[in-house]
């Protein structure tokens, strides 16, 4: 099942399926290691549409809510 990052449960893992958005956003995310095909785990989600934190390999990243909405992940549910 494919969900956006904000809809993932805390602690859930999945594989990044697709990233929507302009070239700028996509290439910035990818250069930081967030790109389709990578396995990731959601660590936490902050209140009131706050940032989402994730873990990819040993990397930890925080992503704003709006941007997280554009990242789609394939999760097993």
């Amino acid at each position: 099942m494919i969900v956006d990052l904000t809809k993932m449960h805390t602690g859930e893992s999945g594989v990044i399926e697709d990233i929507h958005g302009g070239h700028g956003v996509i290439s910035r995310l990818q250069s930081m290691g967030i790109r389709p095909g990578k396995k990731m785990t959601k660590v936490s989600s902050h209140f009131w549409r706050g940032p989402q934190t994730i873990k990819i390999d040993k990397l930890r990243l925080a992503i704003g809510f709006g941007m997280a909405k554009k990242i789609f992940i394939n999760v097993k549910r």
Binding site: L59, L61, A62, I63, G64, G66
Partner: peptide
């Protein structure tokens, strides 16, 4: 305001 996007170091 733009969205936050940062790496969190250990």
């Amino acid at each position: 305001s733009p969205e936050i996007l940062i790496e969190i170091p250990p």
